[in-house]
Design a binder for these strands. Structure first.
Length: 375
RNA sequence: GGGCAGAUACUCAAGUGGCCAACGAGGGCAGACUGUAAAUCUGCUAGCUUACGCUUUCGGAGGUUCGAAUCCUUCUCUGCCCA
């Protein structure tokens, strides 16, 4: 894997680059749709290519390990073959599930004992077996196994958690180095900065992560409920420490405004469930602002959902979309998901253009207002 | 013409003397959602009020009672059965 830094915005820390993988090149900054169980909910692979224009999608180690399981994935020849997505894939390690399934797990030095949310069965995730699992899933980018502490976390816990994540990272790296990709293409390991909302911990963590000298670096443990300003502060601090010649991935972020602001701080990669989940729940992100499509005011608004985006977004009207949601029709979920993902990809593509053109900062300030507007 | 059953908020539907502005479901209206246990979850849904609270409601009218959606009389309407 190779990262090519192309342009830096003169008035912010935003960058444009190219991330080369064996499944193709990714233009950064980029948004990566989340496909937890090997499927971007309500959007098929063809739509991901043509409508959304996704360049890379996510999968999740925890979910794929439980279902369909490693045997099937290995027999299939890896996730790309299994789900028919021939562009890059990134797998999250299950670190987020350590956070989100807090009631069904126990964290130990060795790893985390989980109880499956599907059948209650017990499983042990360790840095070593997570590396093995991610090798088997076959993602192009595999994430280190970390702990994502909740917000707020007290200093003592945040420090302990960060140190554990660092020790786990060392073990991840060791196992990663000892093993080979299974399907003939390269895999890269990304380590994850933690440290909650404490500057000194973030600094320490970012320095440690930078010292690993891996192909890319991630910032985790943010967008877990802290105020935006705090997220930006932590993110900027980390970006300033992480090497310039490696892609920076801010995990789990965020709203369109969050993405623009963090691009301005030097982030290259994003993922978030917001466009798909909120889309399925009737919240539409458009080039004009945010729409709650179930609201009565759209009932007789026959204007296009989002003319600027073209495609399905220009084809279907707001009134029809409201009808689909009110009637609980599956088509509504599909169009909403495509609308939101198309918008997110459109947004980062525009950002990239502006960075290359050199006027990103001004454009960003204007866009943050527009994309945050509730229509 | 006679007999029986029924009429409760937008709809369906509980409630058969005080704990009832009235269970529940649907519908309606709004909100939440950030490395997905989410096509999910939450709130409101007689009127006024931020709230406390106040006012008017259970087909209509009248009555019994300290107190009625609940008991009595009568009227109206609906369904079923018998002529």
């Amino acid at each position: 894997m190779q990262f090519e830094l192309l342009n830096k915005d003169p008035k912010s820390k935003a960058r444009a680059g190219l991330l080369h993988t064996d499944h193709g090149t990714i233009e950064t900054p980029i948004f990566m749709p989340v496909g937890t169980v090997g499927s971007v909910k309500a959007v098929n692979q063809q739509q991901l290519h043509t409508d959304v224009q996704a360049q890379i999608i996510l999968g999740n180690t925890y979910h794929l390990y439980l279902r369909p399981g490693l045997e099937i994935l290995e027999k299939a020849g890896g996730l790309h073959k299994f789900n028919g997505w021939d562009k890059p894939i990134l797998t999250d390690s299950g670190g987020y599930q350590v956070f989100s399934l807090a009631n069904n797990r126990k964290i130990k030095e060795e790893g985390v004992v989980f109880q499956s949310h599907i059948d209650g069965s017990r499983h042990l995730f360790t840095p070593e077996n997570v590396m093995d699992i991610e090798r088997t899933i076959g993602a192009d980018i595999i994430m280190a196994f970390d702990e994502c502490p909740p917000y707020p976390s007290d200093y003592t816990y945040a420090k302990k958690s960060m140190e554990l994540t660092h020790r786990w990272l060392t073990r991840c790296y060791t196992r990663f180095s000892e093993t080979e990709p299974k399907y003939g293409y390269n895999q890269a390991l990304f380590p994850i900065v933690q440290g909650s909302t404490y500057k000194d911990l973030r600094t320490q963590s970012a320095e440690f992560i930078a010292s690993m000298d891996l192909d890319g670096n991630a910032i985790g443990g943010l967008s877990v409920g802290e105020p935006d300003e705090m997220m930006y502060e932590m993110c900027e601090l980390c970006c300033d420490i992480l090497p310039e010649d490696k892609p920076r991935y801010l995990m789990g972020v965020g709203t369109p405004a969050n993405i623009l602001e963090n691009i301005a701080l030097g982030v290259d990669m994003f993922d978030c469930v917001m466009p798909t989940r909120n889309g399925r729940n009737g919240m539409l992100f458009t080039t004009q602002g945010i729409i709650n499509i179930r609201n009565k005011k759209w009932a007789d608004d026959f204007s296009p959902l989002d003319e600027t985006l073209g495609g399905l977004s220009a084809f279907y009207s707001k009134a029809y979309m409201r009808h689909l949601f009110v009637a609980n029709e599956l088509l509504g979920l599909q169009i909403a998901s495509i609308q939101n993902l198309s918008f997110y990809l459109h947004l980062v593509k525009e950002a990239r253009k502006r960075i290359i053109a050199g006027d990103f900062a001004e454009w960003k300030n204007k866009m943050v207002k527009i994309v945050s507007t509730r229509l």
